[in-house]
Amino acid sequence: MTQIVLSGVHKRYPGGHEALANISLAINAGELVFVTGHSGAGKSTLLKLIAAIERPSTGSVIVNGQNIGTLRARGIPFLRRHLGLVFQDHKLLFDRSVIDNVLLPLDINGFDRREGTRRARAALDKVGLLHKEKAQPITLSGGEQQRLCIARAIVHRPAILLADEPTGNLDADYATEIGVLFRDFNQVGVTVVLATHDMQLAARLNPRLIEVRAGRLAA
């Protein structure tokens, strides 16, 4: 089943910069996909289009059967609840504990506290941070912060996991650890789309590779 379909997508930012040109691709449910390319090639823009953070200038982006280009603003939150987003800069909230960061998506999805806490613990356990559930995120190392970000992205069991340079700031060992995490999620059926310029990681996990070069798909 195709879960993400881009056809003839162009993305021009205000000011005329063309980030993506004529992108067409399809991603099936349960695939593990690496979007590779140099920084500035348009990897992040591609992910933002899938997450409905940006809308295509022309062409159509269809995620879970919904057209991002025509989706109304009030429909976006409900689309995003099927997604898990992992950011290079983590976007953690430093005014609350580790577990409260993981509870946020469950809160938004309307889980009650008890069930939510159970799930949040399970997610933290999965990324190896359960022993730090009461800690403040600021006290975590870079790798731990990234794993916390991943726990937050998967705690509501999304169908699609999008990760933008998740290993960007990490040394090779940490990067492998994170990469293995993503593969584990993929093996239980989650579609994983990961933007990276780390070809070593790609070589280890053997994903489907999509290379973006100057806003176009490389042949």
Partner: peptide
Amino acid sequence: RDEIEVAKLIGATDGY
């Protein structure tokens, strides 16, 4: 604003 941005990214409605 950080919290608002993150909440929007993970599917919070305007009401929330």
